[in-house]
Design a protein around this nucleic acid. Sequence first.
DNA 1: ATCCTCTCTTTGAGTAATCAAAGTAGGATA
DNA 2: TATCCTACTTTGATTACTCAAAGAGAGGAT
Lengths: 230, 230
Amino acid sequence: MSSWYSKGSGMATSTVENYLKTLYDQQQRAGGGLVAMGAVATAMDVTPGTATSMVKALAESGLVDYEPRGGVRLSTKGEKLALHVLRRHRLVELFLVDVLGLDWSEVDQEAEELEHAISDKVLAKIDELLKYPSVDPHGDPIPTSKGKLPSRTLASLVECDLGRTVRVARVMDQNAAFLQFVDRHHLKPGTELVVRHRDEIADAVSITSKNHPALTLGTSAAMKILVEAV
Amino acid sequence: MSSWYSKGSGMATSTVENYLKTLYDQQQRAGGGLVAMGAVATAMDVTPGTATSMVKALAESGLVDYEPRGGVRLSTKGEKLALHVLRRHRLVELFLVDVLGLDWSEVDQEAEELEHAISDKVLAKIDELLKYPSVDPHGDPIPTSKGKLPSRTLASLVECDLGRTVRVARVMDQNAAFLQFVDRHHLKPGTELVVRHRDEIADAVSITSKNHPALTLGTSAAMKILVEAV
DNA sequence: ATCCTCTCTTTGAGTAATCAAAGTAGGATA
DNA sequence: TATCCTACTTTGATTACTCAAAGAGAGGAT
């Protein structure tokens, strides 16, 4: 088993792990190109100077490629570690919901600390207990232990077919208030619903589902709810 | 300053938590008196100078009382925090064994990292899931959430009555090899056995139990197995 | 009475991560 | 072409540890 990232010599600190995780996230949004240093600083909630020196250090250890005044991109090694951290984060989230019964709106925060403290051995036991799941409570895919991220292409409520029954597959926001809203209106992953109509001018999307009242969402909220065909 | 060790509200760094935990342990062994700085340095595996400066910092924040060239003792505040850390450690250990199925010989090491990353919310869920246990897998008492340590007085295999059936209640050693030995010879907490005789000269204690062959232990090993009356 | 030894303390330096503030590169504006 | 703005980098300082090595106190031995 690969051991360069394991506990012992040369293990990444939790700060390094967080930078890599953030970088991976930014890179997905930025469509694979270079991530601007400003974006890194904002996402990590540090001053620009801190981001620069940290990214330089990551480049030094071969985890990222850094172009001064250009931006930063994960190296193969860095992406592998980022996916490992993401796997720990998402498995822990699912574990906290399914085994310990925490609310899905709070597990992202809780997993933030635990993802850096859990050993491969404990993670393997959690994986086993959860029967090798492929998605976390928000529908986010869980990277495999080999570092592959199984990704499906999903349409959001602003793109999917009108009048057809679809199932919620993923919620693209970890904000507790938004997740509580989703829960309150029965839009959690697994729920089936139909998009009735969209109004460009009103910036709204109207949906209906069995057993629950009709609901209208703004576009920016509707974009965060991803669905799959039933 | 009075709160340099804080991370949020009243949260000590994991280094501070480890010093307090070690100090608590040393204090139990030392019978409540002052703990020598050398003992702290050895137990924490740091140089004497590091121990001195760290203890001075702990004294600065009111967690210990420190007498230069005399020694150190936990303050009321420090003992409270130490017991809180001990509670997290032991609940996590029991959780790792009972829920995740890890071997009891390895959970002390695993809990070492996790005890600093677990929130009160998650800890409360674990406590609930385990039905509010009072001892960990080694029989060590779990401090209550209010910081009380319920302690029974137990006799070891070198002190208990001869010829009477007793039950193993606690194993006073976290060393993996010793715990594996205990497991292999069916001496885990809960097991019933009888001490047949002791030999001062041979430094040995002989025991028997149902379904298993007779066994002779050296005194130093026998001292680590604590038993209760059946 | 001095020396020796052991334990502990002090000092100086290093590492990882951070901020504030000053400096610079380079494109947009005029 | 000159200037200006924004984004980024550099610099210097700080915090929370840590070690190595030098210094000091308190005891016993010679």
